[in-house]
Amino acid sequence: MIIKPEPSPKDLSYIIENSGLKQSDLLNMYKKMVTIRYFEESIRKVYHDGKNPFNMASGIIRGEMHLSIGQEATAVGTLYDIKDEDVVVSTHRPHNHAIAKGVDINRLAAEIFGKATGLCEGKGGHMHLFDKSKNFSCSGIVGASFPQALGAAFSFKYQGKDNVAVAFGGEGAANHGTFTETLNIASAWELPLIIVIEDNKYADSTPKSLVMSTTFHYQRGLAYNVPSYLVDGMDVIDVYSTAKKAIERARKGYGPTLIEALTYRYIGHFEGDSEEYRTKEEVEFWSSVDPIRRLENRLLRLNFADADVLAKLREEARKEVGNAIEFALKSPYPDPSEALRGVFA
């Protein structure tokens, strides 16, 4: 990826005005992105408690943990105009999407901790979140989000509703058959579906370049007559501008859109990942375009906020996250007698 120079204040003002975003929107986006970052950093810290030497089966939070630190802009930019009635189906890396969709972070944290006050009463864990009130769900099955969101999109069209469905997936998931099958049906039936591929260069530890015959995933969407776009996933404004058009198009009944967001996760595929597949220099390179820091610098350059305003927003986010972690820690575990209640065998 070639990092483009930051636009001048005049050009930046034009870009923001053309996107329809206001000063208040950008400040809201900033706080949401910071909240996601603080939440995942806090979860990561607790996750590693009691895991020295590292053992997934020990500690307060057990099992695998997939975090999206660095990918905040794709979630917030895509879902900023999404309503509660719209459906969002996420992946095994779902925290950023859940928070961007408006899922309660107290119940989200409690579910990750396996507590009875969690979204699924502690039975789903971090890869199987479900919030009916926000129409949000995710799955640990790679590539499952595409047909699941397709079903919701079909339901909306069948019922004559103007709601949309959004499916997130990574570059690894885009190599599954569910991706192309979903594109084909969504296009043929003109369903209100938006697929977002978060391209962070690696499918687990496999570089995308080793397993793809094309350079970009959006090229595949064009083959199915689906409007497809490549966006800077480290720039929340760029993501939002394209997502806004896709959402408006879907609501008007014009069918699906594919968005490929070039982004990067600053930590391993999972906690405990040795990260031997990438170099320290590569991580440092991508850290220079941190989506939160980029938005912060733009807010300052445009005089949309000063250091005190941004510090206040960060403190509010930090407090909300701290309260959520405390809520999860103090919540009770599910009663063993309820182990089979609310689950499917």
Rank of each mutant, 00 (worst) to 15 (best):
I3L: 13
I3C: 08
S8T: 15
K10V: 15
K10N: 12
E17S: 15
N18L: 14
S19N: 03
L26C: 06
L27V: 10
N28F: 04
N28A: 11
M29D: 02
K31I: 07
K32R: 13
V34P: 00
R37F: 02
R37K: 12
F39H: 00
E40H: 06
S42P: 04
S42Q: 10
H48C: 10
D49Q: 15
K51M: 05
P53E: 07
A57Y: 12
S58T: 13
I60L: 11
I61M: 06
G63C: 07
G63N: 05
E64T: 13
H66N: 08
L67R: 01
I69Y: 02
G70M: 07
Q71I: 09
T78Q: 02
D81V: 10
D81W: 04
D81R: 06
I82K: 01
V89P: 01
T91F: 08
R93F: 08
N96W: 04
A98H: 00
G102T: 05
F113E: 01
K115Y: 05
A116Q: 14
T117M: 11
T117A: 12
G122L: 07
M127V: 11
D131K: 04
K132Q: 14
S133P: 02
N135E: 09
N135T: 08
S137Q: 06
S139T: 09
G140C: 10
G143N: 03
A144L: 07
F146H: 05
F146D: 01
G151C: 05
F154H: 10
F154S: 11
S155V: 03
F156V: 02
F156Q: 02
V164Q: 02
A165T: 03
A165N: 04
A165M: 06
G169I: 03
G172V: 04
G172S: 10
G177Q: 06
F179N: 04
T182Q: 08
E190P: 03
L191M: 08
L193I: 02
I194D: 00
V196Q: 02
V196M: 09
N200D: 10
S205H: 13
T206R: 05
T206S: 10
S213T: 11
H217W: 14
R220T: 05
L222P: 08
L222G: 11
N225M: 10
N225R: 09
D232R: 08
M234C: 09
V239P: 00
Y240N: 02
S241C: 14
S241T: 14
T242C: 13
A243I: 06
A246H: 00
R249W: 08
R251Q: 09
R251G: 04
K252S: 13
K252D: 11
G253K: 11
Y254D: 15
P256Q: 09
T257G: 01
L258K: 01
I259T: 03
L262Q: 09
Y266A: 10
E271Q: 09
D273F: 06
S274W: 11
E275K: 07
E276L: 15
Y277V: 13
R278Y: 09
F285C: 07
S287P: 08
V289T: 11
P291S: 10
I292H: 00
L295A: 04
E296G: 11
L299P: 00
L299C: 07
L302E: 06
N303H: 15
A307C: 15
K312T: 13
E316Q: 14
E320W: 08
V321H: 01
A324M: 09
E326R: 14
L329G: 13
K330P: 07
P336D: 11
S337W: 09
L340Q: 10
R341E: 15
